[in-house]
Design a protein around this nucleic acid. Sequence first.
DNA 1: CGTGTTCTTGAACCACTTCAAGGCCCGTGG
DNA 2: CCACGGGCCTTGAAGTGGTTCAAGAACACG
Lengths: 241, 241
Amino acid sequence: MQITANLAHSLTLPGKQCANCALRRLNICAALYPEELAQLEFLAHGFSFKRGATMFAQDNPAEFVYNLTAGVVRLYILLPDGRRQIIGFALPGDFLGLALADHYGFCADAVDSVIACRYSRQAFADFVDTKPHLLRRIHEFSTHELSLAHDQMVILGRRSAIERVASFLIGLRDRWSHIDGYSSVHITLPMSRQDIADFLGLTIETISRTLSRLARDKQIVIVPDGVRLLNVSSMEALTKV
Amino acid sequence: MQITANLAHSLTLPGKQCANCALRRLNICAALYPEELAQLEFLAHGFSFKRGATMFAQDNPAEFVYNLTAGVVRLYILLPDGRRQIIGFALPGDFLGLALADHYGFCADAVDSVIACRYSRQAFADFVDTKPHLLRRIHEFSTHELSLAHDQMVILGRRSAIERVASFLIGLRDRWSHIDGYSSVHITLPMSRQDIADFLGLTIETISRTLSRLARDKQIVIVPDGVRLLNVSSMEALTKV
DNA sequence: CGTGTTCTTGAACCACTTCAAGGCCCGTGG
DNA sequence: CCACGGGCCTTGAAGTGGTTCAAGAACACG
């Protein structure tokens, strides 16, 4: 189905990298004082993952945790018969392995080119145990993820196809605007239609038909790398009620 | 739809209540040393909620957090047009308000007679800030809930009606067995068919038909207060694959 | 023992899926 | 440079699992 070559490329990590990190205000590192940041930097290794590469797989020992700095990651659970549910897309600033558990609860692979800071889970957990304010920050991230999961449960349990697609587009736009600092009517969709389908509990044909219908109704324009919103407020209206 | 009389009854709380609490090994209090438990007990008030009573509502200021000691609570999100998604059922030992956020992210009301220890959120959060091991425990509870939410997303996104009902029954059985210490083929269902439907993303008629079908196929017997499993392993098989 | 609520069952319907085919895009190799 | 091949996406037509609508049965509670 997807390329699973697990070829992560280590990057050189020059000193003061963390201090210059554009994402620091967004990710868990914001909880740290400069000297703590330097300590944590000592534990970090920059890694890059090619489009389609597996970062980790469900039920495997959780050797590492990741701080995502660029790219999009799909997180998913597979059923034995091949059905797949994507439980979320991780964006820059997101942390993979918040549970600090000894096994991964889901699979993660790179949707496009991904760059991440990698830490040994054990070393990271030991570090966290000495920094209650970092644990508090991690807990905030977890509860935010829990709240996203609740929203997704509403979408999966009670929303129509068009509402699901609209919620997906608006949700992605909101998350990117939080990262970039501005809201664009252009939404880049690095993931495939199949990924969107497996996220929204629909089939690839329904995603395609629904996007076509939104385009026919002059709500969006489908462009090569994503969509452009023509009527943000009517799109947002679909995500409510 | 449901009774929403918010009449919580305060219980007298004799000394050493926490020390004698049967649920302590299960709930967040297990993280505390005896003297810390005594400190926390000082912040607690026992409350009971009648069947149908609202414990708190979505978007309201989170004045309190709760440690559930008896009964079942339904947690749900409402859409403006009345559609409801139950995001989970809380059982004894569960903690409501793990996020420690200033507003509730969902509604909670008593499915049957509920008893809970109530804390001022502010006082509880202040207490947690002085006890990193308690925060760690709370974080474990949160990530466990996140994992339950992920499982539910798979159910809502990718499973058939019969698989959803089987997963619900087996999941409830597993959770109760963890609380009671033994596994019974008898599963008490204090919640209504409508509640089950709103949890599984189906309609009440589909729940009723699916249970009838399982009974006709000699998989279960429908009894007044729940169901009795006749073939646990074939039921469990439905929750996999 | 009536009255309202919850649950069950049947029949018709429909939103989404499944099956099938064709189009588009892009990399590869002649 | 164009032909070929393989993903990925789109679209149509038929099928179906679950919903909706409707009515009766079982149950709970005064």
